[in-house]
Nucleic acid binder design. Structure first.
Lengths: 223, 223
DNA sequence: ATTCGATATGAACAGTGTTAACTTAGCAGT
DNA sequence: ACTGCTAAGTTAACACTGTTCATATCGAAT
């Protein structure tokens, strides 16, 4: 049955001490993450991750289906932090309008702080190429896809808009549509600032505050 | 060492100075474009473009610096059409607020109609990896970069906001900042629908009209 | 002692963008 | 006619990429 801890057994004794509690899987994730913010996405290749872990490239395939799986898991772990942040805000005793603003700001700042993960989760198309019709299925989306955690984040905003409606404010669209509009506006700011960091944008703080405001009042003017 | 020239009989004496209609350069662009919308971005590779033109892969480098240059030129040509559309709208005798809405809608629809080109122009980071500080240069941006045409598009919106100000409406931010906020909100919608076409978004038309409205009234509530 | 299953490896495959060296064809000028 | 010169294209190769396959090692259970 269960074997305790990990079975060390590196064929070539790695000079770095194997910390307790690290599985090889975690090592890979950690190496990928480090490579990520030290040298950027472009440098984060299978062979370089493997090199960092001190292992050959095919070894990664014992723990991950393919390269995307590694990146997706990495991103999902980061996005879990955003989710936690939003749930914090959710618990604050604020009027719904204010909670909306706090969430918007938290979302934007998070995105700007994790540009690579944000890009992979929301900007990179992993959808198969020839598929272009928008299948409108409210199905149980498979959680392995990128954007799965993204969808969770999104659902938080829906909840707040439902709260807004419950407070008596009339919404011009269904809560889910309101949430999409607010979310997409903030998303636009993050996406553009990440993709075009060299463009001479206006002052970042002004843009953030302005977009938070616009994303709320643009959808529900009375908020 | 036989000079068994099974040589390409396609030695059309296409004097490029002659420039009647199709130069080889244009052929390459056309092939890339066709490949683009027949088989998607992923299939648009140097060798396959070359194959379509009926030429070897390295031949493309006689006309373009690298692969990106091909794609960028392709995108710029498409975006020139958007620019023309916006200039049409610019000439319509409408109140500035209405012109803003018309432009927003045109922008969004254009983006959704040309997802691949939009992605390359606005979503793909071609910025060198380690550069992450935002150099605030109002300079003569080099026109070869992707987003060069994008910047032109953007400047159109700035002009309209200046017209709004001139009409007497007080703006909460400088015109350029207003334009950025409006633009970025619309950009968010386009970017997300392109990147995640399978997500069960609300009705597309509702989102478009809603975002156009929000991108204007969110920034300038009295418009 | 042998089998088993997990872990890891080196070699290789089918791609990618790109560069180098070489071959032509066509056109000027002594 | 014979040089040169230039533009346009070629084949071969390089340095990568993600990924698969056949093989090896090794601790543990039978």
């Amino acid at each position: 049955m269960g074997f305790s801890s990990k079975a060390a057994a590196t064929k070539t004794p790695s000079r770095k001490a194997r910390g307790e509690g690290h599985t090889r899987r975690d090592e890979i994730l950690a190496a990928a993450k480090a490579l990520f913010l030290e040298e950027g996405v472009r440098a984060t290749t299978i062979r370089r991750i493997a090199e960092r872990v001190g292992v050959s490239a095919p070894a990664l395939y014992l723990y991950f289906k393919d390269k995307d799986s590694i990146l997706i898991e990495l991103c999902d772990r980061i996005f879990a932090r955003l989710l936690a942040r939003l749930e914090e805000i959710e618990r604050e005793p604020l009027p719904a309008g204010q909670r909306l603003r706090r969430m918007g700001e938290a979302y934007i700042r998070f995105g700007l702080e994790h540009p690579d993960e944000y890009r992979i989760t929301f900007l990179e198309a992993t959808a198969p190429e020839p598929v272009r019709f928008t299948g409108h299925r409210t199905d149980t989306s498979d959680l392995s896809r990128p954007g799965a955690k993204g969808a969770l984040v999104f659902s938080k905003i829906v909840q707040v808009y439902e709260a807004v409606a419950k407070e008596g404010t009339r919404l011009p669209y269904p809560p889910v549509t309101c949430a999409e509009l607010s979310f997409l506006a903030c998303h636009g700011l993050v996406a553009a600032l990440i993709a075009e960091p060299d463009f001479p944008w206006s002052d970042r703080e002004t843009l953030i505050r302005g977009m938070v405001e616009a994303s709320v009042r643009g959808v529900v003017p009375t908020l």
